[in-house]
Design a protein around this nucleic acid. Structure first.
Lengths: 147, 147
DNA sequence: ATCATGATGCAACCACGTTGCAATAGAATT
DNA sequence: AATTCTATTGCAACGTGGTTGCATCATGAT
């Protein structure tokens, strides 16, 4: 029976199997990107990640393509807040697909919170022959208001 | 004495006085930008506006600077939807809170349409101690669905 | 009519994102 | 272990949205 001794090893194994589970090859740059997102708290921009990984010889295009691959695979979440750059972060495992329920994005702390379905009502006028895939509210959250 | 005969001239006068009221010089490019925003229904991107005005010899930088000047002056509203480009539109004079009407963004054609305020209702649960600045719906518009 | 200053056009630049392609390296197969 | 197929990488080059510096022009005040 195999036992992991150092926490970092568990990490690596988990990351690799997560990749394999998504039918993605386990490569050094891809692991690096995933690892970096895994140990980072908030959402990270492409430029930020490139800054951290290019010293290790990883190209910015590679970083970008991996970010896309990982987000398409559902391993990382790609969010667009108000600053015109994509931010990436570890996808919440118990995350529902970007389904019906609305999201609230705080423009200050960039936190994304999920709202219950009944938080937003769409009148029939909202979707004139269109289908609504996502509802997003932007604003300032309670925590940031009292800070 | 000069009298305005055609409705378009009346328009021009209104636009010009709006500019003067904002302590902005009335110039040909600035009037053109304002006029274009005034007669356009939805929110327009800088690229879009440039496409319309550069045939008239107006530079894209000038368009941009005027968009900034006008939005700083409060004459036009600058909104950021999910597509990493600023959209500008006529600022509603009788605007409730910072021009908060909802937008619909088609994920296929990227077109942005403005929705009436009553298209979306936020239940009190939506904003638990938060303030909502912007509401945006993403989806597939009717035109793209039937295509 | 003059003139100070705001506005314009042009060129050049930056950041973010994207694409094409030859070289490389996973991993499946023998 | 060697072979083979193909996903992935690195590089270079490009595209778009946005920005800046600067010489020139024209609005609006005098």
């Amino acid at each position: 029976m195999k036992r992991a001794s150092k926490p970092s090893e568990i990490d690596e194994a988990q990351l690799a199997s997560a990749l394999r589970g998504a039918h993605l090859r386990v490569t050094l740059p891809r692991l690096a990107v995933l690892r970096e997102l895994w140990r980072t708290a908030g959402a990270v921009s492409h430029a930020d990640l490139t800054g951290r990984l290019s010293p290790h010889g990883i190209d910015r295009v590679t970083v970008w393509r991996n970010l896309m691959a990982l987000s398409e695979a559902g391993l990382v979440a790609r969010t667009d807040l108000g600053d015109h750059t994509w931010r990436f972060e570890r996808a919440d495992p118990n995350a529902h697909a970007a389904d019906a329920h609305p999201h609230f994005v705080c423009v200050d702390c960039r936190k994304v919170t999920c709202l219950p379905d009944d938080a937003v009502f769409l009148s029939s006028a909202a979707a004139r022959g269109a289908i609504v895939l996502e509802v997003q509210l932007k604003g300032r959250c309670g925590a940031c208001l009292t800070r």
